[in-house]
């Protein structure tokens, strides 16, 4: 039976509103399959699936850093490493117009 979360995580690779979209661009630029990407981030495949379903961060630098920090902390990843992945993915090409606009994000607790 199809797991809907697997289906969603798969679709997140191609949907600009998800973090999976950036991860997919990074993975393709580095020719990494899922296992290699998870290993690079220091997480399991299960956590990678969850990470794909997070939202795409804002691209404005100060908000980007804050949101990447939130994502990294929530998934047990080094913030610097995740930031590097995102910056590499964004360097490949800008996000499409359908990516989420930059709004305020809650302050970390």
């Amino acid at each position: 039976m199809s797991d809907p979360l697997d289906l969603m995580a798969d679709r997140a690779r191609h949907e600009p509103l998800f973090f999976g979209y950036l991860l997919e661009r990074y993975a393709q630029s580095q020719a990494l399959d899922d296992a290699a990407l998870a290993a690079h981030l220091g997480i399991t495949l299960q956590t990678l699936r969850l990470l794909r379903l997070a939202g795409c961060p804002a691209t404005e630098p100060s908000r980007l850093r804050l949101q990447i920090h939130l994502l990294a902390e929530a998934h047990g990843i080094q913030t610097g490493l995740l930031l590097e992945v995102v910056q590499q993915a964004l360097a490949e090409s800008p996000l499409p117009a359908s990516a989420p606009s930059e709004l305020l994000t809650p302050e970390p607790a």
Partner: peptide, 17 residues
Amino acid sequence: LQNDVLAPQAACLAFLP
């Protein structure tokens, strides 16, 4: 609505099953 970066994931986990 506030573009909380962790909200889409939470929504998938909460609503999809």
